[in-house]
Structure formats: structure tokens, C-alpha cells
Design a protein around this nucleic acid. Structure first.
Lengths: 204, 204, 204, 204
DNA sequence: AATGAATGAGCCTTCATTCAT
DNA sequence: TATGAATGAAGGCTCATTCAT
């Protein structure tokens, strides 16, 4: 295998997807700072350190970028929540997650974006449907994990019961995301105390 | 008394604040439908059935309207939450409230607007501070009510304990607002079941 | 009748349609100078001595302006051709018309625009249909006139024969329009000689 | 003889002019479909199945391509018209030619392009001059042929008389080209009838 | 108080052209 | 020779805001 052309296609693909990533990262930052609508393509180009025109080689339109960011965000959120599950120290994990949200950890969902895209879903059906689908996935993840956890602790949880708990957990955690946006300097202890209060009834 | 100016001061004031209200109602509708940024002054003028120029006699700028809407929204939210307190059937009240949110009841807070302005608070310090202040008020309301309720049932609740519960309730209820936006056709029963699950530990 | 408000509606309408006219005249000039595509909205605004944004109060888009210009042009062409008919000195009239075309008389059809919009009709079905309809009208006008003329001179002309002559006249005259574009300094005599040669067989 | 460079000069030249042709064919198609201005270099590159950058090795600019296309078109038109001359069945030949124009025969002049470039000649002096020169050639061809034809039929035709007839024929035939563009579904019979009517006075 | 015409900055997007590879 | 990524200058259009009436 000739190395000089064996990985050419890969290289080409890498370049393109690296550029896409570069643009998406820049866009994410701009959207966080100014909102989807107020962030201009020029500002994204600036942040990505490329020319404005070049963006259109990688994305059809600003809207396509917004969509891509939203999908990323949904994936990040799913991952964030998946990261809660494994252990036993559930409350502690949530505290950490909220702290990352508040800190603006670039690898986690951004809560302000999360709110804005939720509002957007109200007006744009395509986005609305994507959100709906993602929410159902998340709830399913949660319910599944709760039943496993129940099993592990020797009890059982009916499907519907698991779903109600998952729903409630979702409300609680997203409510925390909202708090993280509106009161960015709330302390970890407050979050921890709230979790200590609410979780016992929700977890099997 | 000269009839032509007898009640002018009052009339003028009435007229002016009626106009302001007219504009704010129109703006609210436009903001709900298109978002703060995408709603144009022209569309607001249209909805208010006045000319675009006239708006500037009552508001300095579009931003001033947004601010006014946000303040209204915050008041509505406080009222919404105050309406929860009085009775004993707290869960039922929440279900009703969420139903009104989902239905787009014009006299209640609009949840999509609530999300969007929360995101906006991230970028505009003036808004951020207004939200912070409102949240503290709400939490105070909640805590006070919880302590009264505790007293009424013969127990006591420390200040800090009341605050934690208030915080948790806030997360839960705002989480429900978010759900109302993202899953507008969730049933009342799901909300009721979630409340039945979560409230017992939170209420004294 | 109070004169100060009796003609207000008229005044209002006048203003708007005066502005539309102002814009169309400017657009016509720009289109003649640069072509439909190459003329910019900014150049039209400049020529009309108004701001670029204002144009959009009177026209939906650049395309709407092009359409309006084309319709105007078609009307002008029909009028140009109608002006040929009345007299007996048909050849002379044609010579005059071609002279006006060559001179760029603002009240007559502009032959360069005529060519460009004919080409455009190939690509834009809306324009294509408008042209087709206008051409049929013109041919009808011509045929009707030929039959009247025949009658007046004591002969008759069948419908189909009149149509063929009308078609031939159309080709000849439009061919002259093309010549006016491509050889703007051809002399009147050449046109007159050509007409003297061709018309006898075509006119009854 | 070293096979690797034996026929290089020829090959290179062939290659280069083949590429030029390839590009011009693609450009012609694009120009017909979208017009000179609206056709993009990218679309031409696509149609030619080469990269956009490569075009610039063979042509200095888009304008150079337009110029080349126009020159080609003028040659095609001259050939089209030359093809009319040889026989006696002149009318029939014209009918055939118009049919080819309407059908978009790739080897004949394209009438929509013909119109567009005529309009362009109004604005770009270089093009205007090229058109003028071509028209004079065509008229000369025509006049020469008319005189030969006269001779053959035993009469004579003065230079100026031949020129007037040539001019008139040109108008008629170009008028037909215009008709071919604007009424693409006119029947051959109509064209034939028109020719039967008009030609007798024009041909010796 | 009220209108709506007018402005002009700024936005998204396209495209001819260049250049490193 | 050939590619296609990259640029940057326009271009069409929208919109908050102002102002003469």
C-alpha cells in the first residue's frame, strides 16, 4: 500500500470536516455571546479566522449552521445526562454537571443556547421535531437506567413508573440548567442540598 | 370649570398608558410568534394597529419595549407562582398552571418568552440583573409561604431549609415550563404524576 | 366641498404613483445602460435620487421592477406600432419610428431593452408568457388594420391572409429594431429604401 | 524518436484548443440557459467537467469567454446565412433554418444568445464593433450573392440596389430569429407563407 | 397625537478570480 | 496540467429609527 495516496481521501475528508468543525466552534461561541439571530456570519467568519464567503463552501446557509449547532447541542446534552448515570453518587454527579454548565465548559451543553433553541423550537417545526425526538431519547435513557438501577437494588420498576420518574428527573435537571443561566453564581452546596432533598423519592 | 381641559391630566395619562399597553400587548404577541430579534417594529405597529412612528412616542427604542415586556413577564410569573400558594391542593394547582402555560393563556407568563429572555439575560447585564432580582423575590415568596405552611401544620422550618426547598421547587416548576415549551402535548396526568412523586418531600 | 381634503386621497395616490414612476424611469435608464442583471438596485436608487431602501416600499423586489419595466415596454411597443397604422404614408411612419428608436426617444420602446427582455423570456416563463400575449395582441392589431385598409381600398382580405401579412410585417419591423440596435448610424434613406421595396407586397 | 515528446508540440496545441473548445461548448450551454451574466464560472466549469481554476489557464476572464462565444456565434450566423444562398429554393431553406433555430440546433446560431449579445453590443464598444463588422460582412455576402443570382437570371443589379435588398433580407431573417425566440411553437407553414409573400420582391 | 415616507447601516449570500499544492 | 480551497468585493434586501406634515 502506497502511503502517499493511501490516506489522501482521508486527508481530504479531514480537511473538510476540520473546517466544518472550526466553523461550528466559532459559531457556537458567537451564538452563545450574541444569540442565534444577532450573531452575524461575519462575526462567525472572524471567530473562525476565515473569510465570510468560505463558510458557504461548508454550510448552505446560516440556518444550516444553526441546525448543526442545535444537533451538536442535543448530542452534548444527551452525553451530559448519560454521564450522570453510571455511578451511585448521582447527586454529586449532578452538582458537577451543573458546575460545568455554569462555567461554560466547551465540551458540555451550553445552557443559554439550550434555552434559546428551545424557544426556537416553538417557531420552527424542524427544530421543534428535533427537540422532541431528542427529549424522548433522553427520557428513554433515563427510564432504562432507572429500571436497571432498581433491578440492581433488588426491586422492580414498572415501565410507566420509570417514565414518570424519568420525566420528573428531566424537569429537575433542566430546571437546574435554567438556574445555571439565571443565577450563575449560585454555589455548589445549594445544588447539592436541593438534590439531597429531591432525589431520594425519585431514585429507586 | 372649563370642560375642555377639566380632566385633561387624567385623560392624557390614561390615554398614554392605554397606548403603552396596546403596544406592549402587540409586542408580546409578536415576540411570542417570532422572537425578540425577528419581530420587527413594523409588525408590532401592525399588530397594535398604529403607525410605526408612533411607537417612539411611547418607547425610546425596541430595546425599551423588550425590557418592558420582560418586566411584565416577570410580574406575571411572580403572580403565577403566587397563585399556587394559597390552597392545600398544591399539586393540582401546578397542573392547572402548566396547562395554562401550554395553552398560551395571555394572562399567564409565556414559557417560550420566558426561555428567550432568560437567554438574553446572559448577554445584557440590565436584563440579567432584573432576572436575578425577580428570581430572588420569587424564592423569597416561596420560602415565606413554606414557613407559614409549616407553622400551620405545627412544625417549623429554618430559613435555610425553607430556601433550599424553595430553590428545589423553583427548579421543578421552571423545568415544567421548559417541558411545556418542548412537549406541548404532554398530558395533565403526566404532570400530576410527577408532582405526586416529587412534592411530598418538598412540602412540609 | 372643502378643497383641502377633497383631493387628499388623490394627492396620496399621486405621491405613491409618482414615486413608482420615478423609480421606473430611473430603472429604465439603468437597465438600458447596464442590462437588467448588471444594473444594481443602488444604481437605480442613485438615478432616482432616493435611498436604496425606499425602493422596496414601492416594489417587492428587483424582479418586480424588471417585470414592470417589461410591461411598460410592451405597452410602448404596442403604442409605437399602433402609431404606424392611421395614415397612408406607412413607409414614412416606419422610418420615423426607427429614427426614434435609434435616437433613444424615452417615450418609445427601447430596442436594446426589447432584445434583452426577449432573451429573458426564454428563461423566465412569466416573462415568456407576457411576451407571447403581447405579440398576439400586436399581430391582431396589425391584422385588423390590414383588413380595414383592404376594405377601404375596395378589396377584401381573408383572416388567414391578413394574419400572414401581419406576421411578415412584424418580422420586418422587429428586424428593423434589431438593426437600430446593431447599426445605430444607419441612415433614414436606407430604411426608407427597404420599406419601399418590401411594403408593396405586404399592404393591400 | 522519443515517444514521450515526439508529438508534443502538436499534442499540446491540440490539447489546448480541445480544452478551449470544451470550455466554450459548456459556456455556450450555460449562457443559453442562464444568460451571460447569470451563468457563473462555476456552472461553466461544471458543465465542462473541469475545475473552475483551470478555465483561467485558457481564458483570461469570464469576459474573454463571452467574447469568444460571441465571435463563434457570429461565425455560425454567417454560416447559417451562407447556407441559404446556394440553391433556388430560397424560401424553403429559410424555413429549415428557422426550424433549426427554434429547435436549438447546437451547430446553428442560438437566437436567444443572438439577441442578448446584440443588446450587449450597445454597452460594450468592443462587442458593438465586432457585431457591426459581422453585419457588414453578412450584408456583403448577401449582396454579392444577389448580384450573382441576378446575373445568372440574365438581369443586373446595381451595387446600391443589391445592398438595399440585402439589408431588407437581413431585417426579415433576423426578424424571424426574434420570432423563433418569442414564439417557439410557431409552425413552419406560417414561416413559409410569410416567405412566399415577402421574397418575390426581394430576389431578382 | 399621529402618520408613513425616507434613510442608511448592516445582513446574508454569490461569484469572479487567485494560488498553494 | 489540474484542482479546489480561499478571498473579498459587491449585490439584494430588511429594519430600527427619524422627521416633515
Amino acid at each position: 500500500m502506497n502511503p502517499s495516496d493511501s490516506d489522501k481521501p482521508v486527508a481530504v475528508h479531514d480537511r473538510a470536516s476540520a473546517q466544518r468543525d472550526r466553523i461550528l466552534n466559532a459559531a457556537r461561541q458567537c451564538f452563545i455571546e450574541h444569540g442565534f439571530h444577532a450573531a452575524s456570519m461575519a462575526s462567525i467568519a472572524d471567530a473562525a479566522d476565515i473569510s465570510a464567503g468560505l463558510i458557504y463552501r461548508y454550510f448552505d446557509s446560516k440556518n444550516a449552521i444553526i441546525l448543526a449547532i442545535i444537533e451538536r447541542q442535543l448530542a452534548e446534552k444527551r452525553a451530559d445526562i448519560a454521564s450522570l448515570a453510571p455511578g451511585i453518587d448521582f447527586a454529586e454527579r449532578i452538582v458537577e454537571l451543573v458546575a460545568r454548565w455554569r462555567a461554560g465548559d466547551a465540551r458540555a451543553m451550553n445552557p443559554a443556547l439550550f434555552l434559546e433553541m428551545s424557544a426556537l423550537g416553538t417557531r420552527d417545526p424542524q427544530i421543534g421535531n428535533a427537540l422532541l425526538a431528542a427529549d424522548r431519547l433522553t427520557r428513554g435513557d433515563f427510564a432504562r437506567w432507572l429500571r436497571q438501577r432498581a433491578e440492581r437494588s433488588g426491586t422492580t420498576l414498572s415501565d410507566s413508573e420509570a417514565t414518570v420518574r424519568a420525566f420528573t428527573l428531566q424537569c429537575l435537571i433542566e430546571g437546574l440548567a435554567l438556574r445555571a443561566v439565571r443565577e450563575p453564581d449560585i454555589g455548589d452546596e445549594q445544588v447539592a442540598a436541593a438534590m439531597a432533598l429531591a432525589l431520594p423519592t425519585l431514585l429507586p
